[in-house]
């Protein structure tokens, strides 16, 4: 198959970017999208031109490194799929494919399609953990957890931190990301003790990092490669309300 690519080229965060066109011919529809990008880059290298920078690593859809906008969708047209797991058969012959980096004030462009998502790490650092030191843990089976809670916690914890939710959101909100961690930990007894404090801190960091607010459009879950659900956001809100109430009551005491 033949394709016409339009790719956002930006040499660094401080320079302006432009869209450039590239054409690739005789692409095997069974190769992955990133393998197609490899072919393009090898071609550019041979022409002594700067190859397109993009983040990727495991190419198994789990490390969360890859991700850019393909025709206006983060990770492209296929549901529940990261770019690295997307194959060229998802496109048609002679299709125009537009590639842009994830757009958000909190995700500054590093180069071309590569953006800096360290804001996510700072959100986690502000409270996305259980405070336990190595060696202090009790016997594992002394904590019994209902299977359905453990399973739900796993589903929330399956987030790969790729940032597609922020890119998909018209407000660049990081609510789905933040809420997935809040809900993972609040569903488990280990995480519940610090729950109220955690949610307040993580939301505060999310705001400081410049992410927008959630207006419940649901675009994040619809585009999430790991199908992290809207229910996580509701759980964060619940935690937040109970955190606010308890802080109100404490004041009165």
């Amino acid at each position: 198959m033949n394709i016409n690519l339009k790719i956002w080229r930006q040499s660094s965060g401080s320079t302006k970017g432009i869209l450039k066109s590239y054409r690739l011919e005789n692409i095997d529809p069974n190769i992955s999208f990133l393998e197609m990008m490899d072919i393009l880059n090898i071609k550019l290298v041979k022409e002594k031109k700067d190859p397109v920078a993009f983040d990727h690593d495991c190419r198994e859809g789990i490390c969360g490194s890859c991700g850019f906008m393909i025709n206006g969708s983060p990770h492209g047209p296929q549901k529940a799929t990261t770019v690295c797991q997307l194959h060229m058969r998802a496109f048609s012959n002679e299709e125009d494919i537009l590639l842009e980096p994830f757009r958000a004030e909190s995700f500054p462009v590093i180069k071309d399609l590569s953006v800096d998502r360290k804001a996510f790490d700072r959100i986690i650092s502000s409270g996305g953990y259980v405070s336990t030191n190595t060696g202090e843990a009790p016997e594992a089976n002394s904590i019994s957890i209902k299977k359905e809670y453990a399973d739900e916690a796993f589903l929330s914890s399956a987030c790969i931190g790729c940032g597609a939710c922020v890119a998909a959101c018209k407000n660049s909100s990081a609510m789905l990301f933040t809420s997935a961690k809040v809900s993972h930990l609040s569903l488990l007894p280990q995480g519940q003790k610090e729950g109220k404090d955690r949610v307040a801190k993580m939301v505060a960091t999310m705001d400081e990092e410049g992410f927008g607010s959630c207006t419940n459009t649901g675009a994040c879950s619809a585009e999430c490669p790991k199908e992290i659900g809207q229910v996580n956001i509701a759980r964060l809100n619940q935690e937040y309300i109970s955190s606010s109430l308890s802080s109100l009551l404490k004041k009165k005491e």
Binding site: V130, E139, Q190
Partner: peptide, 22 residues
Amino acid sequence: KNIIDQCVAQGVPFAREYGGLL
């Protein structure tokens, strides 16, 4: 053995049986 204890304490959602144990 200590590793499992440590990870559970951190909130790693290991698979569980219906009885609630690992």
